[in-house]
Amino acid sequence: MIAWFSHSRIRSFVKLSTKKQNNIKTELDVKFSEQRKILDSRISYAKDSARKADRLLSRGKNDKAKEAVNSFKLDLASSQPVLNAYVSTSLEKNLFEVMSMEGFEFPDLLGDLRKDIDFGLFSVNASDELDAIISTEVDPFTELGIEL
């Protein structure tokens, strides 16, 4: 069975009353907004550091530019755990939205027929596995040939 769809918390959601489902979704919305806010702020800091480094470099202030790049690296590293948590919450939020749709069926049938059907991030089990995938899949720096 697909990793995410085998969790008892996920399976039992469909059996809950609409009121209870809405409560869970509201809690998730709050968590999602908070994580998004933190993520946006970390990204904004990182972009500021990058802009600063660019400015300093163009003025020939190489040492200070290097410091700004180091600050960027720190912002980048600190945004990774938030990004991972954000992706996980967003997946759960989206999953519950789809599960709330009338006529929803778990893809057990397809999952039973084929073990290798790609349900993307829903197929990933433990959170550390999810973190590893996000870190490697979501890496435009490597894609652009930038070595930090």
Binding site: K47, R51, L57, A68, L121
Partner: peptide
């Protein structure tokens, strides 16, 4: 400039995560 591209790459990273979801 390499530092200039870093900010853009940060944006790309977030969008890529959204695409995966």
């Amino acid at each position: 400039s390499i530092p200039r591209v870093l900010g853009t790459a940060m944006e790309m990273r977030q969008i890529k995560a959204e695409i995966l979801i």
